[in-house]
Write a protein that binds this DNA or RNA. Structure first.
Ligand code: MN
Ligand code: MN
Ligand code: ZN
Ligand code: ZN
Lengths: 134, 134
DNA sequence: ATCGGATTGAGAACGGTTATCATATACTTT
DNA sequence: AAAGTATATGATAACCGTTCTCAATCCGAT
């Protein structure tokens, strides 16, 4: 994920865009709110406005570099779009997020959609609860 | 769904609560935003404040009479909580909502949660796309 | 019918996100 | 390398859905 990826997406290579990509790649956690990213940037010594963070994340999403999810809690969360889809398990206690992928579920979704004459273009599956060790 | 249900839920029987229940029971559609409900009330000649609509829907949710969902589009949608869980298929074109239930998916979710040491307390599954006849 | 606590309605406040606009920056052209 | 042009940025205002505040009203037990 480098400057070429930005150019390929039709985006100029600017300092905010590079730094935000860096943050997303190097952070401990995969899923961040816009404000998380904003604060990580500050901690890294970069004074990038929150509006810019939102703008850039939205552009990255449009370019397919980033995915946006709406978990409970109001704030959208963003993650680098690796290749391959996955779904999420979210702790209502700590906010911890674990990813999973289940081909049986994916297949059933396709079948159900078809049975209803529905052309499914996307879906969200989120499990809420808590991890036994927290 | 009558006054007894309200009392059972520890809620006084007030005109706004009765009218909102009526709307939810008699409307063509099952899924409504708070503003939908507010406008249906106006159309029915009831001048009930939007704040009250939000309050009452939230109370109904807490009492288990109503469920709240977050589809795409910012506004929460509410529906009467029949017995039994279901998931949703939402048209990104028209907003049409179709409900479904698939035991295979439900079972897989339980298994996946368990495999991750996760005590699942709820989940949301939403398919987005469009119906072939629209 | 009276009383006291719960409920309501209007509007202010709130939180997350997007829009505005003057200034700064990246890339292209000399 | 310098200038020119278009785009991006940052501060802040605006926005939108929802919740809060508080005086006035209503419910229902007595
Ligand atoms: Mn999936
Ligand atoms: Mn389900
Ligand atoms: Zn993820
Ligand atoms: Zn439903």
């Amino acid at each position: 994920m480098d400057n070429q990826d930005l150019r390929k997406a039709g985006l100029k290579v600017t300092l905010p865009r590079m730094k935000i990509l860096e943050i997303l790649e190097n952070a401990e956690e995969n899923h961040h709110t816009a404000e998380d990213v904003y604060k990580l940037l500050l901690k890294a010594g970069e004074e990038i406005g929150l509006a810019t963070v939102y703008r850039v994340l939205t552009q990255f999403e449009a370019a397919g570099l980033v995915r946006r999810h709406h978990f409970e809690g109001g704030q959208a969360v963003f993650e680098l779009a690796g290749d391959g889809h996955h779904d999420h398990m979210v702790s209502v206690k700590t906010g911890k997020v674990v990813e999973f992928y289940d081909e049986i579920i994916e297949e059933r979704q396709r079948i159900i959609a078809e049975e209803h004459g529905f052309k499914m273009t996307s879906h969200t599956l989120i499990l809420y609860g808590e991890f036994e060790d927290e």
